[in-house]
Amino acid sequence: MESKKLPVLPVSAPPEGSVPHAPLGEGCFLGETQRPKAPKLREALATIKNWFRANSLWVMAYGTGCGSIELRPLTTARFDMERFGLAMRPTPRQSNVLIISGYLAVKSLKRVIRAYEQMPSPKWVVGLGSCTINGGMYWDSYNTINQLDLYLPVDTYIAGCMPRPEALLAGFGYLMEKIKKGEANGWHHYLENLDWYKENQKKVITAWDLPDYNW
């Protein structure tokens, strides 16, 4: 079928007094975009540090899809994730875990990437629900991605549609074990294969107006 372009429309002038948004990328005050170097994975006192990291996972409070409804019960008396040292943080600068809770629209993907890159390393991504694994029931939507790990390094997948909070806790337990063993190195993989990730990301995010890496 011949694809039809949108009719070319006259874009009206913005209302008076409003400031047009700064063009992104160059000149957008984001500073010099430095290509980050992946540090050496080996580090001193790794066992202790990993124990600290595993027992104090701060979760980015960010919901992308219907799965985020399953996150809320975790803070309640019934499931109480705080007893494992898990806590919600509202800012990526202080978070260690990013949960992709369900389907992920292209528009959201861009925000997710930005949030992910603003998190301090080491950081972990948890894919929640089938949608993050293979598109799930939304596989043929014009606007959602089908495989999360093409764009972000996923450390733990929690399958199901939707997984229950117990499954989430189990997933966190798995992630903590992995961290303690020093195997949860998705962040490192991301940095090492940044070009590949970026290529994939830019393939779907056609209006790419981000710098190549946000700190």
């Binding site: 039809k4 949108l6 606007n143 089908n146 495989q147 209006a207």
Partner: peptide, 28 residues
């Protein structure tokens, strides 16, 4: 909602979603 959309408007019925998905979002 569609940032950087370069296809035909998706709600028109002659827009083929599956074809679009195959082109843009590869399946596992």
């Amino acid at each position: 909602i569609l940032e950087g959309w370069d296809d035909m408007p998706p709600m028109r019925r002659d827009f083929d979603t599956v074809e679009h998905v195959h082109a843009h979002h590869p399946s596992r």
